[in-house]
Design a protein around this nucleic acid. Structure first.
Lengths: 193, 193
DNA sequence: CATTTTGTATACCGAACGGTATATTAATCT
DNA sequence: AGATTAATATACCGTTCGGTATACAAAATG
């Protein structure tokens, strides 16, 4: 692992454990066995480091979501696929997933929140689109696509958070596909009745 | 409003807007038109201020939850009641509610997280107890009371978060009781099938 | 009225903060 | 080989951080 990647990994671990604001630049470079100018050489600033970290890790997830949300198929099928993708993203790096959620829930005026926000907006809008297309076909959503999108993302996250509380470390292995299906089913029940 | 209450109010607003770590003691006292020794006179430390704030506002909510969770009645009825109490708590001070949630989602090693944690543990354990009693009557929960408790709290929060996203300020007025009922119903469907 | 308690301000502390000017080494290019 | 660029370190910057020693005023208490 080169020093740039090393710094991102160390920063991720510390941001996850102590929170973005509570971690100093000094602390990050010490963990990496480097010095401050090296960090500033690669990232320009502390927030630049966070931004690069988010970009690197979130982009692939987002592109998968985009593809799934654009694929014309049954809405239930689309939601299954989105659930699977999200779980895979969670399993790939649980710490990173939880860091993202913590940032999402942090204060609006905070730099760290503003750094994650665009990614979640894009994620959210892709889900909205999926419901939007379904509405064009069924016409029974009464403009509640945005609520459904938030609700769906919330439901998935709630399920993953439960997994996390049960077993934070990666011991238990993959999450079963049929479990995701039942979560989606439960969500669909709440929506279409 | 006396200076102690004033400081707590200013701190709440700033913590909500910028995050606990991102707010300096200086900033709090400036907003209140006071000086640092006054803050330290009342609260001893920055974290002491947060702790006092949480204690003051959370205790009443918690006592209501306790009462509702202990009351022997149909589980559906109990969950309705808990949903109502939680919504009332949210409406009483939306900023404070969102601050609490942000703190709950913040990093484990963070002082601020450790300050809210006990309250959520107690909240959570009261909900577990309610399910526990229901299990004693029905015996069909297979030890999943803890999961149900997290799931229930998550569902309620998800609903309130949706409200918040739709209208952060207090314009829209009270949330209807029948809406809460339908949220609880949806949750119950997921659990008992 | 004297004394103690409560509440507030001035002025300061050492430490840590994010960030940088400058130098040096290691690798790449011509 | 010489020049250039990329990558790293030493040592420092001013600012802000959480917190405090001290003094003083107002209010309560004897």
């Amino acid at each position: 692992m080169n020093n740039k990647a090393l710094l991102m990994e160390c920063a991720k671990e510390l941001f996850y454990a102590k929170g973005y604001d509570a971690v100093g630049v000094q602390e990050i470079v010490e963990r990496a066995g480097l010095t401050k100018p090296t960090l500033y050489y690669y990232f320009g600033s502390k927030i630049g480091l966070l931004r690069t970290l988010l970009e690197t890790r979130f982009e692939r997830y987002l592109s998968q979501v985009k593809k799934a949300a654009e694929t014309r198929s049954d809405i239930r099928e689309t939601l299954y696929r989105l659930g699977e993708i999200s779980c895979a993203f969670y399993e790939e790096d649980r710490q990173f997933y939880m860091l993202m959620m913590a940032l999402l829930y942090s204060a609006r005026e905070n730099e760290a929140y503003q750094a994650v926000r665009p990614y979640f907006v894009e994620l959210y809008e892709n889900i909205v689109q999926a419901f939007e297309r379904e509405a064009g076909r069924l016409g029974n959503m009464r403009g509640r696509q945005r609520q459904f999108a938030i609700g769906f993302l919330g439901t998935i996250h709630q399920y993953l958070f439960l997994q996390w509380e049960t077993d934070p470390e990666e011991a238990s292995g993959r999450i079963g596909g049929e479990q995701i299906a039942s979560v989606v089913d439960q969500f669909m029940y709440g929506i279409f009745t």
